[in-house]
Amino acid sequence: MLVLGIESSCDETGLALYDTQRGLLAHALYSQVKMHEEYGGVVPELASRDHIRRAIPLLEKVLADSSVQRSEIDAIAYTQGPGLAGALLVGSSIACGLGLALDKPVLGVHHLEGHLLSPLLASEPPAFPFIALLVSGGHTQLMRVDGVGQYAMLGETLDDAAGEAFDKSAKLLGLGYPGGPAISRLAEFGDPNAYTLPRPMLHSKNLDFSFSGLKTAVLTVVKNHPANICEQDKANIARAFVDAIVDVLTAKCMTALKQTGLKRLVIAGGVGANRQLRESLNAAAAKRRYKVFYPELEFCTDNGAMIAFAGAMRLQRDPNLAKKEYGFNVKPRWPLDSLSAP
C-alpha cells in the first residue's frame, strides 16, 4: 500500500510517500523558521498562508524523487490535529482535494501519533510494548504503548511543556527563535556549578510534570542581574536550566520503566533531538539495562514521513479506515489517549 502523507500542523510543511512493502520512498520538508524569527514566534496567519504556497511544489518533489505517478497512490493521510486551526485546514483541504481529484481515499491522522511512531522508521525500530516520552511543542507526556492505537497515559505536564519552557527561557536570555536549540547550544559553554535551579515534581509520587516554575526561576535569576548579562553568565544560566529539565525528564522515564516492568524507552518529538537529554537518558538506561530508541534526527521535528507512516500502519491493519469522503474538519485539540486501536 502506497500512502501519501501531508503535515501542516504548525510551521513546517511536510510531504512524504511511504510504501508498506518498500518503506519510505521520499520525503520533503519546508521550515518557516526564518519567516517567524522576525516576530519571535509562530504567527498563525502567516503560517497558514505559507503552507498554501509550499504544499504542491513539495508534492511534485516527492513524486519526482520517488519516480511515482499520482495514479499509483493508494491513500492520502493528513494531519487532522492537534495544531493551529488555520494550518490544519490547509493540509486537510489539500489532502481531500487531491483525494477527490485522484479518486483516492483519505485518512485524518493524529499529529502526536505520528511523532510517537516515528522511531519505527529507524533502521533498528523498537518492538512493542514500550514506554514513550513524547516531548513535542506544547506536549510533554509519558505513555505506555502496546501497539498502534493502544496508548495509555502515565503522566503529563500540568502547565508548561518542556518545549515551551525551552522557548520561554531562551527569550528571557535574549536568544533567537526557535529558542530550544539556541539555549541548548549556549548551555554547552556554561558552568554546571554556577547556578542551581529547581527540579519541579522530581520527587512527586506520580509521573506528571510541571515546568512553569522552572521558567519563573529563570526569570528571577535574570531580573536579579545587572542590566546587561555577560555572555558567560547567560551560558551558565542556560546550563542550569537545561540540566534541570534533563534531570526531571530522565528521572520520570526511569521511574515509568521501573513501575511498568518494561525495558524499552522511546523518545519522540523535537526535544528528543536535544544532545544533553540523549546523553543523560543513555547513561541512566545503561545502568539499569534498559534500551532507548530515538527517531532519526530529521524526523524529530514535524515532518510528512511520520504522517505517511502512521497512516500506513493504521491502514495496514484496517484498509477501510480511509474513505472517499471529502468533507473535512480539523481537531486543534485532540487527546492522544482518546485514539482507539485500528
Score class of each variant (00 low, 15 high):
10 C>F: 07
10 C>Q: 09
16 A>W: 10
18 Y>V: 08
19 D>Y: 05
19 D>R: 04
19 D>W: 08
23 G>M: 08
26 A>T: 08
28 A>S: 14
29 L>Y: 11
29 L>K: 13
31 S>P: 09
32 Q>G: 08
33 V>D: 11
36 H>F: 10
36 H>M: 11
36 H>L: 10
37 E>S: 14
43 V>S: 11
44 P>M: 08
44 P>V: 09
46 L>K: 12
46 L>I: 14
49 R>V: 04
50 D>Y: 13
52 I>T: 14
54 R>T: 12
56 I>T: 15
57 P>R: 11
63 L>F: 13
64 A>T: 15
69 Q>I: 12
73 I>D: 07
78 Y>E: 08
79 T>C: 11
82 P>V: 06
93 S>Q: 12
93 S>C: 11
95 A>D: 04
100 L>H: 14
103 D>N: 14
103 D>T: 10
105 P>V: 00
109 V>L: 10
110 H>G: 06
118 S>K: 07
120 L>P: 01
122 A>Y: 09
130 F>D: 07
132 A>P: 04
138 G>S: 07
138 G>I: 08
142 L>E: 00
148 V>T: 10
153 M>N: 12
157 T>H: 04
159 D>G: 01
161 A>T: 00
166 F>T: 02
169 S>L: 02
170 A>S: 10
176 G>M: 13
179 G>E: 03
179 G>S: 08
180 G>M: 05
184 S>K: 09
184 S>Y: 07
184 S>R: 09
192 P>Q: 05
195 Y>N: 05
195 Y>D: 06
195 Y>E: 05
196 T>V: 15
198 P>K: 01
201 M>D: 03
201 M>Y: 10
205 K>G: 13
207 L>W: 03
207 L>E: 01
208 D>P: 03
208 D>V: 01
209 F>P: 04
230 C>D: 15
232 Q>L: 10
237 I>F: 02
244 A>V: 01
247 D>M: 05
247 D>I: 00
251 A>Y: 13
253 C>G: 01
254 M>L: 11
257 L>H: 03
258 K>F: 12
263 K>W: 06
264 R>G: 01
272 G>Y: 04
276 Q>R: 14
278 R>K: 07
278 R>D: 04
281 L>W: 00
282 N>K: 14
283 A>R: 14
286 A>I: 07
286 A>M: 11
289 R>E: 15
294 Y>I: 05
296 E>I: 00
303 N>M: 02
306 M>I: 04
312 A>R: 01
315 L>T: 01
316 Q>L: 13
323 K>Q: 15
326 Y>E: 09
326 Y>R: 06
328 F>Y: 12
331 K>N: 14
334 W>A: 06
335 P>M: 07
336 L>Q: 04
336 L>P: 04
338 S>D: 15
339 L>P: 06
339 L>I: 12
340 S>W: 13
341 A>N: 11
342 P>S: 07
